[in-house]
Design a protein around this nucleic acid. Structure first.
Length: 489
RNA sequence: GGUCGGUUGGCCGAGUGGCUAGGCAUCGGUCUGCAAAACCGGGUACGGCGGUUCGAAUCCGCCACCGACCUCCA
């Protein structure tokens, strides 16, 4: 923990020095997906953002407990309409399977995609359905504290009453009185005393499949509750970091704060961190908007908007090229650019490992490392980290071309730098498509024959071999004393 | 309507008062049998209008446009 980390705290709208409650331990909770369909590009953003934060915190020496939930309780598609189906049940009916089968299927799919993106698995991945009892306990506590009321088998959080004891809206910057003045009253919310009240427990209709018995009714917990319950259960009443998408600030996280504060008398979260959205044609990409591209589609290229497939590491690099609090606009051009940039970086890493040290260094590499740490510590500014790494790439290539030299010691430092930042912190990895020995053997045999043709100045044959290989996706790069080759991605 | 954020070159995307961001693309050059790769160099920027300042992409004001949230959403 020799270095300071500054994080942007949504609560104060400023970058703050990160100081855990109980160093060296850090508790981090991140809102995970509702598992009712394939995960999409939008899910990759928080997954990668908090993966980077997790990796960096560990790199700085913290012992991190990273909790990311799975929402597997079916929440209503339209809360104003009690007759509406929940998402998971709807999917189950469409596919004629059990709701829990839906949950399992898409949870598995989410995990596969996350693995491909090389995100580390959370320390704990709690599921809402596994914490029904705890959720009911919290509801009881909130009722006892006087901040919730029961109405016809459902329990609602009393926002007005809460607002008289604690400030409601501190995260999103909303003021209850202004909200009341500016909103129209929706029909169909008769049970609520105020339109801003939200459900802690919802009585289930006859048709509702996912429901549990409770002191109030057969029903299911409100959406906001699971995060309040599972975060504090595993991280303590007060913990360090809570992350999630910006779209969750209101009402989800605002309600979480209200629930936890109502139950414990104090807020639970010290640093609220929010990643921005991925947009497509300038508009938010979301499952609910129907303009999303699933991760599987990106990896396979199987989508009308995709000109080609993009590898998981290309997606990761694409996302890392923007700072997490800015939007990233999807386009084929941007993804293709990311894929080429990534290839340049990874090729340089390979080159680096083959460089030979010299007596002395002709260039100074010492500044890069410190600049990378500075950028990471400045609210995870990964695009700037990459910019500095690309300075290193140029140096690597200069040395490889014999235009500059590096001492053994500097070479070791540079290798260490790239290993640390490219692999450990940014979480990039080699995507070997050239991987098998048979292919390598055949390509090198053909290229050796081409060398012989070149020696005879048989340019026709030599060019033909190179062109044919290129058509097959093998890019040949001649060197003074031989050749390099790589698979084009 | 309310709250919040944004508008940077062909594309993506950093940058908060003077000092080259970076990637991709493009043009010229070096290297090469020719390419590719690499390296060197060039060009095209800071939404508009005012203001503060010796000096503003960077601070202030106004305007325009875009987006997010206000209902489920990563």
């Amino acid at each position: 923990m020799g270095r300071e980390l500054y994080l942007y705290n949504t609560l104060t709208r400023s970058k703050e020095l990160f100081e855990p409650v109980e160093p060296p331990y850090v508790g981090m909770y991140v809102c995970g997906p509702t598992v009712y369909s394939d995960s999409h590009l939008g899910h990759a953003r928080p997954a990668i953002t908090y993966d980077i934060l997790y990796r960096y915190l560990m790199h700085l020496g913290y012992k991190v407990r990273y909790v990311r939930n799975i929402t597997d309780v079916g929440h209503l598609e339209n809360e104003a309409d009690d007759s509406g189906e929940d998402r998971i049940t709807k999917k189950a009916r469409q596919e004629n399977i059990e709701p829990m089968e839906v949950v399992q299927r898409y949870m598995n799919s989410f995990h596969r995609s996350m693995d491909l993106l090389n995100t580390l698995q959370p320390s704990i991945e709690p599921r809402a359905t596994g914490h029904i009892v705890e959720q009911q306990e919290m509801i009881s506590t909130i009722i006892e504290e006087g901040f919730a009321y029961e109405e016809n088998g459902s329990v609602y959080f009393d926002v007005e009453k809460y607002n008289r004891s604690y400030p409601y809206g501190i995260l999103s910057g909303r003021v209850l009185d202004e909200m009341k003045a500016n909103s129209r009253v929706l029909e169909g919310q008769d049970e609520k005393h105020s339109p801003f009240d939200f459900a802690l427990w919802k009585k289930a209709s006859q048709a509702h499949i996912m429901k549990w018995s409770s002191p109030w009714s057969n029903g299911f917990p409100g959406w906001h509750l699971e995060c309040s319950v599972m975060s504090t259960k595993y991280l303590g009443d007060v913990f360090d970091i809570h992350g999630g998408g910006m779209d969750l600030i209101f009402p989800h996280h605002e309600c979480e704060i209200a629930q936890s504060t109502a139950a414990n008398g104090k807020p639970s979260v010290r640093y609220w961190v929010h990643n921005n959205m991925i947009t497509i044609n300038g508009q938010k990409m979301a499952r609910s908007l129907g303009n999303f591209i699933t991760l599987d589609q990106l990896f396979s290229g199987n989508h009308p908007l995709l000109e080609r497939a993009y590898s998981p590491m290309t997606i990761r690099f694409f996302i890392l090229q923007a700072q997490y609090r800015g939007t990233v606009d999807f386009s084929n051009e941007a993804l293709l650019s990311a894929s080429l940039g990534l290839q340049k970086l990874m090729t340089a890493v390979k080159t680096l490992n083959s460089l030979k040290g010299s007596e002395r260094s002709s260039i100074d590499i010492s500044a890069i490392k410190e600049k990378c740490y500075e950028a990471m510590s400045d609210d995870l500014n990964t695009p700037v980290v990459l910019a500095h790494l690309f300075d290193g790439v140029r140096m690597i290539n200069l040395v490889n071309d014999g235009r500059e030299t590096l001492s053994e010691a500097d070479l070791d430092d540079l290798k260490e730098l790239f290993r640390t930042f490219v692999f450990d912190i940014l979480g990039l990895k080699e995507e070997e498509s050239s991987g098998n020995d048979l292919l390598s053997g055949v390509v090198e045999m053909v290229l050796n024959m081409r060398q012989e043709a070149k020696a005879r100045k048989d340019w026709a044959t030599s060019d033909r071999i190179r062109d044919e290989l290129l058509k097959l996706g093998v890019n040949v790069k001649d060197r003074k004393d031989g050749f390099d080759w790589e698979i084009k991605h």
